[in-house]
Design a protein around this nucleic acid. Structure first.
Lengths: 213, 213
DNA sequence: GAGTGGGTAGTCAAGTTTGACTAGCGAAGG
DNA sequence: CCTTCGCTAGTCAAACTTGACTACCCACTC
């Protein structure tokens, strides 16, 4: 799964109604263009796809209020919201070691009730443990690991990565159970999107972490 | 960068001369279809692209020796070998948190002289440290990290991941400096490809996309 | 009042990736 | 014999991604 659908659905959903450029700006605010495929072309493509699939509703072009060409506004549909939560739960639960999906999921985690977030993350740690077990079992030959030569280092990397992620997930669970952050149904939500006319403090044009050289 | 070019170039290079299906099997032997985009379509596409760019030389179709349709054989060119080492060095040096590129690079690391492998990995740890510093500096607002709310967990994840990877890289450096594995110019290389007619011990019989039914 | 620089809001062609599909051949079974 | 199964060795259309490009409008200068 690519992160783009989750990102776009979530961004539109938080706005209620948004046009492409707004989504693009939100995701830049998140730094998402750095760590995911949320680039202009992909965003507009995703918006059209999602609209075609009935997950977003496309309002006819409206004249721009601040200069620039007219724009299409999108609103999330009921099925779109369902899909958003399906993708979010899936991204939080399953271990697939893709940074972009994981990061996007954390960005939206507060859209869930606290108890569910914790439950999904616990499910995630179970998934990691299982995956770890299946790697060690499946890829270590009977004649000992030397059999694999340096290829064994790949499995070693995986195990190491899985362990690190398990530890991080547990830390997050602890923080959430300890009362951190504001989740769905707990009052004023954290504002993760840019209000109209607010300058993006992170749109520096500089090189950011995650930039490919 | 996707891992496919590195994987395909490396696989053809280790064989000297190989046809698509052989590359496909090698990569399955590595488990690469699990952790990268090395799926049939992508492999054959990459082979054609690389041939078009002069990095591989395509020999006209040869009749199959074991049944099945005729096949095209590929051989790596001088420029192809250069490109392979460029990609390999780049993948070992730069921190881009993509599992597939990283895993592919480890798979081929023994194609380099031992000293260079160590040097590149040390460069990598420097890169990770630099990246870590730039994240903490750039994404932590002056008014304290609370400003970011749960979004801060994304940066937390990145830091955690970077630290884990730095530790793993250091471990690998230590093992290599300690004399592990056989590198270029050190005698009989480790066989990372399947010889003709040898059964793939990791072909689990599971159904994969692209398998004929 | 003509150019031009910058922000807004996208489009587009080229390239890549995916997963389903095809086609050739030998072996086994009836 | 002739059909079916399974392996070999791919092809292909559809979808997705990328990065460069366009078009519009405003504000400002010269």
């Amino acid at each position: 799964m690519s992160a783009i659908r989750l990102l776009v659905l979530g961004a539109v959903r938080q706005h209620g109604r948004a046009h492409g450029y707004q989504v693009r700006n939100d995701l830049e605010y998140w730094g998402a263009h750095e760590w995911s495929n949320a680039k202009p072309g992909s965003i507009y493509h995703a918006l059209k796809q999602l609209a075609k699939q009935g997950l977003l509703h496309a309002h006819e072009v409206a004249p721009s209020t601040v200069g620039g060409p007219p724009r299409t506004e999108y609103e999330i549909t009921g099925r779109g919201s369902e899909e958003f939560f399906t993708l979010l739960r899936e991204a939080l639960t399953s271990y697939d070691q893709q940074m972009d999906v994981k990061s996007a999921a954390i960005g939206f985690i507060v859209e869930l009730p606290r108890a569910e977030a914790v439950a999904l993350l616990k499910e995630r740690t179970r998934g990691i443990a299982q995956w770890r077990a299946s790697v060690t079992e499946h890829y270590i030959p009977e004649d000992g690991p030397e059999q694999l030569g340096h290829i064994g280092e790949i499995m070693n990397l995986w195990i190491h990565t899985a362990d690190a992620e398990a530890a991080w997930t547990q830390g997050l669970i602890d923080r959430i159970e300890g009362g951190a952050y504001t989740f769905a149904g707990e009052g004023e939500p954290f504002v993760g999107v840019l209000a109209d006319g607010v300058e993006n403090p992170y749109a520096t044009g500089e090189r950011h972490p995650g930039d490919a050289r």
